[in-house]
Design a protein around this nucleic acid. Structure first.
Lengths: 255, 255
DNA sequence: CTTGTTGATTGATGTTTATCAAGAGGCCAA
DNA sequence: TTGGCCTCTTGATAAACATCAATCAACAAG
C-alpha cells in the first residue's frame, strides 16, 4: 500500500489518536483494493468482517425491501463505513456499491475490536465517530418525515451550494437517478420537482444548477441547523473531535 | 436515591462494565427526579448537560420543523437517551417529553466523558450502545422510505405481538395519536389503516388488537430481520453485548 | 346530571406521489 | 453510421396521503 494512502487513513479522526505501533498492528492485516464502478462490496444481511475506508471514488449505501430500493447515503473520500456492524460483530443492514472506480482500504474488524479494548483513546474516537453517524441519521429521518419532496430538494440544493463554496452555480455530484433515490422519490418525480423549483429562481442545465434568487429558495426550503448540516467546507482536517461526522458529510480529499 | 434504582442502572450494559469506584464517581453527581406526564425534559437545540436514564414511565423523543411534528422513538424503562449528544458535547437534535409519570436519572455528561477516557471497557460499551442505536435508526429509515403506511402498521403490529409474548391478542402500548406519529402518518390515516387492515384478519377493539390470521397479515407485512427487530422479549438482562440495542427496543422493566 | 375536553372515527375533498407509457437526447460499440 | 442502451423528461392516470369538518364516546370537573 502506498504510504500516501496510509497517511490519508492516519489523518482520519478514528486513526489519528492511535499510537504508531497500534496503527501498524491494525493496518498490518489490511489491504487496499481498486474496484470498478458498480461493484457490490457488501450486500445487506452479509456478515461484516472488515471496516471499509473509501480513499478515492464514491460509494452508495443502499437498502432493499420487497423489490423496492433506496439509497441511505453517498460517501465521498475519505470516509469509513459499516463501523457499527464491525463494532457489534453483526450483519450488515445496508448494501454498499461503488458508483465510480474506487480505492478502498479494508481493515480487519477483528483487529479493530481488539485495538479498541486496548486503547481508550481509540475506543473514544470510535464512540465519537458513531455519535456523529447517529446524529446524521437523526437528521435524515427528520428530513424524510417532516418535509415533502420539493422541500427536500430545495434543502439539498442549498447544502450543495454551501459545500461547493457558496458560488451562484454548482454541479450536481451524481446522476439524477441516484439523487432521486437519496431524496426518497422516483426519478420521474425528481424531474418534476426540478421543473417546479424553477419558480423559486433555480435554473437547471444538465448537471449545472444556478440559484438565481437564494432568498426566494430559502423561503421555500426553510433550512434548519437541526436538520441540515451545512458546515463542511472546512479546510482543516478536524477542528475538534467535536464536529458531527456522518459519512456523506465527510471531509473532502484533504490535499 | 434508592439503591434499587441504582441497581437497575448498574445492570444496564453501559454501566455493568464499570468498576465500582468509577460507577460511584459517575453517579455521585447524579440525581433522580420524578416528572409528571407531559413534561418537556429537553427541547431540540438545547445544550445537553446530562445523560438521561429512564427508570420508570415513558418518554417520547420527537422533532419539529415548520410547525410539523413527528415522533422518532418511544422509550420504555430501562433506557438511556441522548447519549450521542453527550459524547460529542453537542446540542440535542430531538426533544424529549414524558408521556407518563416518569422516574428519570440524570447523570453528569461531563463526568461520563471523563470516565470514558479513563476506562476502556466503558468506552467500548458506549461504542456498542451507540452502534445499537445507529442500527436502530437505519432500520427506522428503511421502514420509512421503503414501506407504505399500511405496511408499516402491519409490521408494527407483528412486532408488538412478538414483544408481548406472541399471544393472539395484545394491547397497544400508547395512544393511537402517538402511534400515528411514530408510524409517520396522521391520526386520521391511522384510523383508516386500522379499518383497512381488518381485511387481513386483524380485529381492533379500543386498545386491544387481535391477529386472527397471522399468516395473512404476514403476507401483507413481509417482515424482514434487516428492518424489524422482533428479538426482544428476552428475559435475561443482556445475552451478550452483541445484541442490537435501540432505545425503543430496550429491555423491559426487569422485575 | 350537565358541561367541556380529549381522543378516535368517518366522510368529503384536494394535494402529493407513484406508476405506466412514450419520446428525446447522449453514448458506446459493432 | 447505425443500433442498442441508458438517462432524463413529459404526460396521463391511479394510488396514497393530508386536510378540513363533523360526529361520537369516554371521562373529569362543576
Amino acid at each position: 500500500m502506498r504510504s500516501a494512502d496510509l497517511d490519508r487513513v492516519r489523518s482520519l479522526p478514528l486513526f489519528s489518536v492511535m499510537s504508531d505501533e497500534l496503527f501498524k498492528t491494525v493496518t498490518s492485516g489490511a489491504f487496499l483494493q481498486k474496484f470498478p464502478a458498480g461493484t457490490t462490496l457488501l450486500t445487506e444481511g452479509d456478515a461484516v468482517d472488515f471496516l471499509y475506508v473509501l480513499l478515492d471514488g464514491g460509494v452508495e449505501l443502499g437498502a432493499t425491501w420487497n423489490d423496492k430500493e433506496t439509497t441511505l447515503a453517498v460517501l465521498r473520500p475519505v470516509s469509513t463505513f459499516i463501523l457499527a456492524a464491525v463494532v457489534l460483530e453483526a450483519d450488515a443492514l445496508m448494501s454498499a456499491q461503488t458508483i465510480e472506480r474506487s480505492d478502498i482500504l479494508m481493515l480487519s474488524g477483528e483487529a479493530l475490536r481488539r485495538a479498541m479494548k486496548e486503547d481508550t483513546a481509540l475506543a473514544c474516537a470510535v464512540a465519537q465517530e458513531l455519535s456523529g453517524c447517529y446524529r446524521g441519521l437523526v437528521r435524515a429521518i427528520k428530513n424524510q418525515k417532516l418535509r415533502g419532496g420539493l422541500e427536500r430538494l430545495a434543502n439539498y440544493l442549498i447544502t450543495q451550494k454551501v459545500r461547493q463554496g457558496g458560488g451562484e452555480t454548482f454541479t450536481l455530484p451524481h446522476e439524477k437517478r441516484l439523487l432521486a433515490s437519496v431524496l426518497g422519490m422516483t426519478p420521474e418525480n425528481l424531474s418534476r420537482a426540478f421543473a417546479a423549483i424553477a419558480d423559486y429562481g433555480v435554473v437547471i442545465n444538465g448537471p449545472q444548477v444556478t440559484i438565481a434568487r437564494p432568498a426566494v429558495l430559502e423561503r421555500l426550503a426553510k433550512p434548519d441547523p437541526l436538520i441540515d448540516n451545512h458546515t463542511l467546507p472546512t479546510t482543516a482536517p478536524i477542528g475538534k473531535a467535536q464536529r458531527e461526522r456522518w459519512p456523506t458529510a465527510q471531509t473532502r480529499s484533504p490535499s
